[in-house]
Nucleic acid binder design. Structure first.
Length: 492
RNA sequence: GCACCGGUGGCGAAGUGGCUAACGCGCUGGUCUGCAAAACCAGUAUUCGCCGGUUCAAUCCCGGCCCGGUGCUCCA
């Protein structure tokens, strides 16, 4: 199937295919590991995950490179405040970041590249730029990119820089608003600052050169797609293009994929608004990992997403419905004859699902296609008209759905427990909601023992005792489900 | 200020120049149950921010206005 995706560079929806016909080479800007990731960060990583998973479903092999920025102004500042070298400051946040990706079922890219481990590539690239007369050194020993040497500057973000002054420059990542100016490639160390001793002189790399150097090292001068959050379009990605194309004289990334920001309860997420949430904040509040993934995925990437707690609760229910359905199809007694209508509906669901994703990654429609199948399947099972072939077909479609959405397997309880243990280690257990703590105050074995006692009480028609146990568990957020073949329980 | 995106039922949200305006949650009714819960089924927007215009026909195209958001500065 032809995959069509919006390309920021051309402003059009275009066909997506690997240049070499087989391996899809993509680069995605990763985290700056100076703090825990927030849900806005993860929306971007999740949408890139959906993209790479869909490429795989369509038979392509991704070669996906992601950087980890482990040296920049913020890291230097925070590490100094904590009184440790940056090399001791970043590992815990990098570790936390990858743990969070696991929680959200985000696949690990084929290659993860740390900035501090690629200094020589960056130095080589800057030397190349200097040879091309696109980079120059200043009195303090820093190196800058000469924007005036790259007439196409602004082609990604559609900005007009024709009036740019040659030689105007800024030396830090964070600076006061002025005009766009030459950006730093290499920053000379301030007194006492950590630095590398290189052919360029002592210093550390600028933020933009890192991605250019590492993308080129692993993917070559030109590759299929470059991804990131919408805010990175300018200046970060614009600068990457300027550096890379000035050095290689080739088109850097053919396709640019930008994920829109999310709002929280209708407002921009910010610490001052009090609506700033890390993944771990949400787990400690009792929201399930699968619901968070589902919510952040369900709104197409080019659309602003309004993240709300009502929405999160709704997605919990939606995931539950899908899981219950899968379980029911697996265990259903099938009819002797196949249901032609149901087979048709199953095929249509699968077709709609793929077509929706192929159409600029419309996850909302893809998801709707699966719920259509849930309804049709349940109705057929109610009527006792689902054949064994029907069941196989439905499970196959659910399997494909889950290759993208990855929410059917239930790891929620273990991730919640993981977050609680982390909070305990960090002395942050007080941030957990009372309900989450209560839910995890009993072990699975203790719960099962109570459930068994209730079943026995029911059998001897001691409903008072049975109801007392049910209430006791309910108070701890544990719900029971009576069915013909026994009792199931779960943490709500 | 300049540039850009969006405003669809109680909430989240898809979509289309004319056909029943998806889907999830919620709500209401039903099936099931010792009673519940869970599960399942069914119903649930004559209407798509406001005002004009184009058109035989507009929620969808054009213009203006109002509201929310984003970029222009570190940010996913």
């Amino acid at each position: 199937m032809t995959i069509r995706l919006f390309n920021t560079l051309t402003g059009r929806i275009e066909e997506l295919s690997p240049a070499d016909g087989k391996q899809f080479r993509m680069y995605a800007c990763g985290p700056t590991v100076y703090d825990y990731g927030h849900i806005g960060n993860f929306r971007t990583f999740l949408q890139v995950d959906v993209l790479r998973r869909f490429l795989k479903l369509e038979g392509m092999t991704p070669l996906h490179v992601m950087n980890v920025t482990d040296v920049d102004d913020k890291i230097i500042r925070n590490a100094a405040a904590a009184g440790v070298p940056i090399g001791e400051y970043t590992p815990r946040f990098e570790k936390a970041f990858f743990e969070d990706l696991d929680v959200l079922a985000v696949e690990t890219p084929e290659k993860v590249a740390r900035a501090t481990e690629h200094i020589p590539s960056m130095v080589a690239l800057i030397e190349k730029l200097a040879a091309e007369d696109c980079a120059y050194r200043t009195e303090d020993g820093s190196w800058y990119f000469r924007i005036a040497s790259f007439p196409e500057y602004g082609k990604l973000s559609k900005k007009d820089f024709s009036g740019i002054t040659d030689g105007a420059r800024v030396d830090v990542d964070e600076y006061d608003k002025d005009s766009a100016r030459d950006f730093a490639l290499w920053k000379a160390p301030k007194p006492g600052e950590y630095h590398w001793q290189t052919e360029l002189g002592p210093g550390r790399p600028g933020w933009h050169i890192e991605c250019s150097a590492m993308a080129t090292e692993y993917l070559g001068d030109d590759f299929d797609l470059h991804a990131g959050g919408e805010d990175l379009m300018f200046p970060h990605h614009e600068n990457e293009i300027a550096q890379s194309e000035s050095a290689s004289h080739k088109t850097f990334a053919r396709h640019w994929f930008h994920v829109r920001f999310l709002l929280v309860e209708g407002r921009k997420m910010s610490k001052s608004e009090g609506n700033f949430y890390t993944l771990r904040d949400l787990l400690l509040k009792g929201y399930k990992a699968s619901a968070i993934r589902m919510l952040l995925i369900s709104v197409p990437y080019r659309q602003q997403l309004n993240f709300t707690f009502d929405g999160l609760a709704a997605e919990t229910g939606a995931v539950e419905r899908l899981r219950t359905f899968q379980q029911r199809v697996r265990e259903a007694k099938t009819a002797a004859t196949e249901n032609a209508t149901l087979a048709e509906e199953t095929a249509r669901s699968r077709k709609n699902f793929c077509e929706a994703l192929a159409n600029d990654l419309n996850t909302a429609e893809a998801r709707a296609a699966i719920f259509d199948l849930v309804r049709a399947g349940n109705a057929a099972m109610d009527a006792g008209t689902m054949g064994a072939g029907n069941a196989r077909g439905i499970l196959e479609v659910l399997g494909d759905f889950d290759k993208i959405f990855a929410v059917l397997e239930d790891h929620d309880a273990e991730w919640t427990k993981f977050a609680l243990q982390w909070a305990e280690r960090e002395g942050r257990l007080s941030e957990a909601s009372a309900e989450v703590v209560a839910q995890n105050s009993l072990t699975d074995e203790q719960i099962q023992a109570l459930v068994d006692e209730r079943t026995a009480a029911k059998k001897s028609r001691n409903f008072a005792r049975a109801d007392a146990i049910r209430n006791e568990l309910a108070e701890k957020g544990i719900v029971l489900e009576d069915s013909k073949d026994g009792v199931r329980w779960k943490r709500k």
